[in-house]
């Protein structure tokens, strides 16, 4: 086994005590924290929702009902499809993609500026300024936006106070607050991979391109962006995954009548006490995430190690 798994005999290389610590730590992590819980959740998602005492009884059997509920709705429903849940699902994915693209567009100029144009001390200052908001809780950052966007919030108060509007804009109701908040929440996870990727580009390449008569736009399109590709993929993947799975920001900023997909999971789980269905919906979310990562890797031909560093 040793020679199959490791370059050198594992116990001999690390000494007994340390080798045991390594094995225990890694097995505990991989098996007990990562693999078993996911598989158990997968199992649960195919079972009927029964109270703990009825487990293993005749009521507890394998079924596709939770998945079919997601697509077709409850058996008593009149609609052909479960438009509510599918709608939430589709909207979550669609908006997450838009948020990802918006983040990319917003961050690219800044990342390029910090990496290649700004002088080192300015760049340092800007980077520190970028990090500081990141250390503040996502909930509190969303809360800050809520203060701005609430119906009686700072923006509306200001606009009506100045006399520009008679009545406040319903930012929260129309989910403007939510979208702003989602872009706000993970923008730095786009910024840093992008910055790191652009930073590693040799400035001479840009100058050579200019020298050969390339326009600014073309230089970016042909030189900078291809070089920054791993950073772009990495940033997009991280932002999309986090946005699709976001819960904190929607809890604070979404309007009462719309839901974000993780909120739907939360409802099945905590309010309706249907853990099996919550698990099934979680699996659906997980599958979407995995498909997204694999697609990104396939389309842009990057390895998983390049996405997360």
């Amino acid at each position: 086994m040793n020679n199959f798994l490791f370059t050198q005999p594992f116990f001999k290389k690390n000494g007994k005590a340390v080798a045991i610590y390594f094995l225990v730590a890694i097995i505990f992590w991989f098996v007990f924290l990562v693999i078993i819980p996911q598989f158990y959740m997968l199992d649960l998602s195919f079972r009927t929702n029964v109270p703990p005492l009825a487990r293993g009884g005749p009521e507890d059997y394998y079924t596709f009902e939770h998945y079919s509920h997601f697509i077709f709705g409850s058996k008593t429903a009149t609609d052909a499809f479960n438009f509510v849940d599918l709608g939430v699902f589709g909207r979550t994915i669609f908006v997450s993609m838009l948020v990802t693209i918006a983040n990319l567009l917003f961050c690219y100029p800044i990342a390029f500026y910090i990496a290649k144009i700004a002088n080192p001390s300015t760049a340092r200052l800007l980077i520190v300024s970028l990090i500081i908001p990141f250390w503040i809780n996502e909930l509190l950052r969303s809360f800050a936006l809520r203060i701005l966007f609430a119906n009686e919030g700072v923006i509306n108060n200001f606009l009506t106070g100045v006399g520009l509007l008679d009545q406040g804009i319903l930012f929260i109701t129309y989910d403007i607050g939510l979208y702003t908040g989602l872009i706000y929440a993970y923008i730095l996870l786009m910024m840093f991979p992008l910055y790191n990727a652009i930073e590693s580009l040799d400035i001479n390449q840009i100058e050579a391109a200019k020298d050969l008569g390339s326009s600014s736009f073309r230089t970016h399109w042909r030189i900078v962006i291809p070089h920054a590709k791993p950073g772009i993929v990495s940033g997009c993947t991280m932002v999309f995954m986090l946005t699709v799975g976001a819960l904190a920001t929607p809890v604070v900023l979404s309007s009462p009548n719309t839901l974000w997909f993780p909120q739907l999971i939360y409802q099945w789980f905590n309010m309706n006490d249907n853990w099996s269905r919550g698990s099934a919906y979680s699996i659906i979310l997980l599958i979407v995430s995995v498909i997204f990562v694999l697609t990104m890797m396939r389309i842009f031909k990057v390895r998983i190690g390049e996405i997360i560093k």
Binding site: V34, Q38, Y40, M41, T237, G245, F269, G278, S279, I308
Partner: peptide
């Protein structure tokens, strides 16, 4: 694990 949505990690731990 960092690619899994956070809610899923929470849920799977609880159900297990």
């Amino acid at each position: 694990p960092v690619l899994f949505p956070g809610v899923i990690i929470g849920i799977s731990t609880v159900v297990l």
